[in-house]
Amino acid sequence: MHPLYCEGLGLPAMTDDTGQALNRFLAEVERRAFRMAQMALRHDDDAMDAVQDAMLQLARRYGGRPQEQWRPLFFRILQNRIRDLQRRRTVRNRVMALLPWRQDDEDPPDPVADAPDMGPGPGEQVEGEAMLAALQAAVSRLPARQREAFLLRNMEGLDVAQTAAAMGCSDGSVKTHYFRAVQSLREQLGEYRT
């Protein structure tokens, strides 16, 4: 019997091999996925929720799909979840703004927004954590679609077609968003180009 088919039923089955493969796949992508969500949502708990939901949905709905489809599927789920959380947060902020007893200090700390903004400086060389903080802050300021295209293409290493599948748009749109994102980051991080 083929290992991917239930005995006598001819239906796709979740074998131990599938579980191990899914575990390996998630372990390989989970940290980058968290960083993506963190840069988009600027909130660690929300980012963790988004990644966790994406993992669960991938396992529940698409665990039986061929493994080469997992990566674009996972990141599409993640991007959708991030957008949902952003919309929810926008609505919540509008409602809170209308409340007369709202306190201004209710907003949680924003580590990415609070990161130092590394403007161009004469001969300044920044490496390591400072470079990461500046880059994360700059990526966070990108428009959502540019940020998605840049992170999926650059950090995750998806090709154009996979990125288009993950973003739910055409190949041409991916190229446009990515090009604009890189241009914007070059302008913001000019001193890091060399």
Partner: peptide, 10 residues
Amino acid sequence: ARATAVAQLA
């Protein structure tokens, strides 16, 4: 989170 997701396969 990963362990929880993998457990959903069963």
